[in-house]
Design a protein around this nucleic acid. Structure first.
Lengths: 134, 134
DNA sequence: TTTCGATATGTGATGTTATTACATTTGTCA
DNA sequence: TGACAAATGTAATAACATCACATATCGAAA
């Protein structure tokens, strides 16, 4: 299963909640948004989130305990490099970018130290351009 | 206040707990270790942790909700670049490294997009060399 | 088509991490 | 001394995440 139309009911509901949001959402915020759709318990959300992360459709932002829809849905299967997230602490907007040089440097370090990386996160906290000038 | 000998009682206790640990500790683990020293509530730990992070003596590992003593205590005040953490999911050991190229690439991205970074974290999850061969 | 296994779901309870609110104490310095 | 800033003590609560167990759904093999 790799495409959106093959998502289960709960997975679709959770993904759509994230897709229509203009920023990251916490699991409990998603839960509240889906109460009318029959959601009752956190686990319903967390299970869907886990699958959606497996499929590469969403990301978890570790530093704020929240989740966002992936901004580059076309590249799910491409094994693109590391993704960095810039998270505005004022408006909550998240920008996503990928940098081959950073990806390469991290790989160099892991290779040279024999560390097998499974998942790497880069999160930049700060103030975005909009909020900085406003 | 910048030096260890100027830490308050609670700050010293928390820092020493982290310094003698061979890996990251959660706030509640620290709390339990310090019960005999008079600690009773999470806030006593969290307040000390906040200060120690201000002083650059410890780091927070966002991806595992834990804290480690800084591995490069000599460079507290140097404003060294970004620090990346490699966290072994088997043994819990954390390796710390700093890479000017990565630091530079991140700065380039933030400069070009007008994003003012305040705190950036890079966390590599995986299996360390020791655990990988064992 | 029945049966089996894998996957998904429903639900309550519990575990873990972090903060709020408020009172009190300690240290510094004019 | 008086006053302010920083640190501390404590209880309660909020926020985030998982466990345990029951039930349901769906596809493939017998």
């Amino acid at each position: 299963m790799t495409a959106a139309q093959e998502l289960t009911k709960n997975q679709s509901l959770v993904f759509n909640a994230l897709a229509r949001a203009d920023g990251p959402l916490s699991a409990y915020t998603i839960l509240d948004q889906l109460r009318n759709d029959g959601f009752r318990a956190p686990l319903q959300v967390y299970r869907a989130l886990d699958k959606l992360m497996d499929y590469g459709m969403i990301h978890r932002l570790e530093s704020i305990n929240a989740f966002v829809a992936c901004a580059h849905p076309h590249s799910h299967s491409h094994g693109h490099g590391l993704i960095a997230f810039a998270i505005c602490e004022k408006c909550g907007q998240v920008s996503e970018f990928s940098d081959d040089v950073i990806t390469g440097r991290v790989r160099e370090w892991t290779n040279s130290s024999g560390f097998k990386q499974s998942k790497t996160t880069i999160e930049i906290r700060g103030i975005c351009a909009n909020c900085g000038t406003a």
